[in-house]
Nucleic acid binder design. Structure first.
Length: 712
DNA sequence: TGAGATGGC
DNA sequence: CAGCCATCTCA
């Protein structure tokens, strides 16, 4: 791509030099190297893929770059590439309208899941199957993963690389440490110790009078600045940052054929505005001396966190939507929005944002959802969609490598919407058991039953299933305990491995490979990876899950083309409605589970290390017969006949009660032990947005936002 | 922890 | 829009 010609021309004889010293000190230089969020030399980049979904399809289909293309989801277009935008195609356009404006437009429908399939696929005329399919964004997630990997490859190893995945098609990069290192190489004078060893001493001025900004879109300077004003180290730093971003983008382009846009500035807010400023395939640099001019030309509703309700409230309060006008409001006026929000706003429109780049590229939760048109109206319909959600989520867990990583979700959550009413239920995922699709299904089905029980649930317009509580990296709160529940296994783990395990805080993929391989094959993995999804198996058979076997059932005998009007996957026979009340007389029992074999205090069903995997046929019957007719206790992980549910829960209740009474005798009730620690925000500097909930809005004045601040 | 909500893409 | 993902608050 772009030639890497030297972009800085040194001029040793800077005849125009006025100041002998830089504005910046040796301390700033140190801050630059350690990612201080308040560092005046900080360099942050935002990289944003151009019309991402559309590019994915262009790459996948191998269509020419100038071919207009849009990505279709049912009747609407969710991504439109730049060639197509020349025809006036914008957001909120239907496929019909688009075709009229641009007859040669390729409209590629997203991939979809169909019940019983072991994988999503690109189906012919998928838009006709809105009633029976659910969309899959997996192809885009996978491309996103490749792109992030490529970006990481083109940067130094961590910790000098800091990459935050901010969305499926965007990342933030904190380039500070890398820029620091490059600066010291190019300007050896910066390596000298400060005079008198005083870090507050000012740096020498750079002996550079011209920066070659290459093809970067430089935004105009503030009125108070002039083009021939002297360069300082912030200019140097940011131009090095720009050069890094250019090389990152070039690498993504060469290797994966994707174009993206970039923004380089002193913080995330500005970098993000920058990347959106000139698209596609360009990058924008906002020098510190250009910030005020750049920003005051914007509507503040374009600024991150001001695009929604908060922005609307500000507009309503101050009767303007421009940064320029809002700059005239003094701090105490802005504080009419709330103290914290006002301060945050005050500094934000002045270009200040000390939010950090969170070195995280792995997701913390995943969700599978579907809106029903028309609404669905029976429990059985709900269960069938849940089967699809579970298949989707489980396969994504595997694709993500969560099992290999020892990352597994802790909670499962089901959301339900009926008109304006939304309800949700969640429960923990038993950590003592293997993580299997069957367990997920059990839990999800139970959650749906709970939602149905309290409150009328039908007709239901939307269902979604999510799993969450994934920790970043292996250690964190999960540590060993999340997986090792018995002493034997804990001992089996070498001390050295345990150390690496626990100290592993960042992403798996940002770690040096040697450190990682230890977990990949050694230690605890073999005890907890179900045999059917171990690496050998997944190489041999790409669909080792119950899914395939499911479709042996009469369930899917009527395969395709269920074009019924209802939002319903293919009919599923043989499902007995699991009632949440165990006293239902119609509740069948699991065949090979004898009630008397299961005492109320059954221990968690943990496979011993040497346990042989169930035979495939055993697995099938296990899944099918237990899944609908049994109850999986989230307290003790035991799988019980549904008829035992109430009895079992009573037993837990009694046991808890006994424990509480015992504790009370020692002056320690459950509630007394809980010392309420006020959730202090750990923001520093001028503060950052930490809120998102609505309940707090009600608590305060309408429209206020929760912002947390350190010292002003 | 569970439930409800917001913001942003 | 629909289908995501992240984060926060309050009990």
């Amino acid at each position: 791509m772009s030639s890497s010609q030297p972009f800085i021309q040194s001029s040793p004889l800077s005849v125009t030099a006025r100041r002998r010293k830089s504005k910046f000190t040796f301390k700033h230089l140190v801050q630059l190297s350690n990612y201080s969020t308040t560092c005046a030399l900080r360099v942050i980049a935002h990289v944003d893929l151009d019309a991402f979904y559309a590019q994915c399809e262009m790459v996948r289909l191998g269509v020419p770059e100038d071919q207009p293309l849009a990505v279709q989801q049912w009747q609407s277009l969710i991504a439109i590439n730049y060639p197509a935008r020349k025809f006036g195609l914008g957001r909120h356009i239907t496929s019909m309208e688009a075709h009229k404006l641009c007859p040669e437009l390729i409209m590629q429908h997203v991939a979809t899941w169909r019940e019983g399939d072991e994988k999503w696929a690109y189906h012919e005329d998928a838009f006709k199957h809105i009633a029976t399919h659910k969309v899959s964004l997996d192809p885009y997630r996978m491309e996103s993963r490749k792109i992030i990997a490529t970006i990481k490859e083109s940067l130094p190893a961590p910790p000098m690389q800091r990459v935050e995945k901010a969305g499926i098609d965007e990342v933030f990069l904190d380039l500070s440490a890398q820029v620091h290192s490059i600066m010291l190489g190019r300007y050896p004078e910066l390596q000298e110790p400060p005079p008198y060893d005083d870090p507050t001493e000012y740096l020498p001025r750079p002996l550079t009078t011209v920066l070659d900004w290459n093809t970067d879109a430089l935004v105009d300077l503030d009125a108070s600045e002039t083009e021939d004003d002297y360069l300082d180290w912030d200019d140097i730093a940011i131009s090095i940052g720009s050069e890094i971003v250019r090389s990152v983008r070039a690498r993504v382009r060469e290797k994966l054929k994707y174009t993206c846009s970039g923004g380089v500035a002193r913080n995330k807010m500005l970098a993000k505005l920058g990347s959106a400023h000139k698209k596609p395939n360009q990058q924008t640099v906002i020098r510190n001396r250009a910030v005020q001019h750049f920003l005051s030309g914007f509507k503040f509703t374009k600024i991150r966190n001001l695009g929604g309700k908060l922005g609307d409230d500000v507009v309503a309060m101050f009767n303007t939507d421009t940064v320029k006008d809002l700059l005239e409001q003094p701090l105490d006026q802005l504080k009419r929005m709330g103290d914290d929000t006002g301060s945050w706003l005050y500094w934000t429109i002045r270009g200040e944002d000390d939010s950090e780049v969170n070195p995280r590229t792995q997701i913390k939760s995943m969700l599978s959802a579907k809106s029903f048109r028309p609404a669905i109206s029976t429990f059985e319909q709900g269960v069938r969609w849940i089967r699809i959600f579970v298949a989707d989520i489980f396969s994504r867990c595997v694709e993500e490598g969560v099992l290999e990583n020892k990352r597994r979700p802790k909670t499962i959550n089901l959301h339900h919407r009926q008109g304006a009413q939304t309800r949700s239920k969640q429960s923990p995922i038993p950590q003592g058991k293997m993580f299997t699709e069957a367990i997920l299904f059990d839990l999800a089905k139970n959650l749906l039953a709970q939602v149905v029980v309290d409150g009328r649930a039908w007709p239901c317009a939307n269902l979604s299933l999510s799993v969450g509580g994934f920790e970043d990296g292996v250690a964190n709160n999960m540590g060993i305990g999340g997986f090792l529940v018995r002493g034997e296994e804990a001992k089996a783990l070498l001390a050295s491995e345990r150390h690496a395990f626990e100290s592993h805080v960042e992403d798996k993929d940002s770690q040096p490979p040697e450190k990682r391989r230890k977990f990949d094959n050694g230690g605890i993995q073999k005890f907890f990876l179900p045999r059917e999804i171990s690496q050998e198996d997944s190489e041999r058979d790409h669909t080792p899950f119950q899914r395939r076997e499911d479709s042996d059932e009469p369930v899917n005998s009527e395969k395709d083309n269920d074009m019924s009007e209802s939002s319903d996957p293919a009919p599923l026979s043989n499902i007995s409605k699991p009632t949440i009340c165990s006293d239902s007389p119609s509740t069948p029992k699991a065949r090979h589970l004898d009630d008397d074999d299961i005492p109320p205090d059954i221990p968690p069903d943990i496979p011993p290390p040497s346990a042989q995997p169930l035979s495939p046929s055993h697995r099938i019957s296990h899944f099918h017969q237990q899944s609908l007719n049994t109850y999986l206790c989230t307290r003790c992980s035991s799988n019980l006949p549904l008829a035992k549910k109430v009895e079992h829960e009573d037993w837990h209740f009694a046991k808890d009660l006994a424990k509480d009474l015992q504790a009370e005798e020692h002056g320690q009730t459950e509630s007394a032990r809980r010392t309420p620690v006020p959730q202090k925000s750990h923001s520093r500097g001028r503060g950052r947005l930490v809120g998102g909930g609505s309940s707090a809005v009600k608590g305060r004045e309408k429209g206020q936002r929760r912002l947390a601040f350190g010292k002003g």
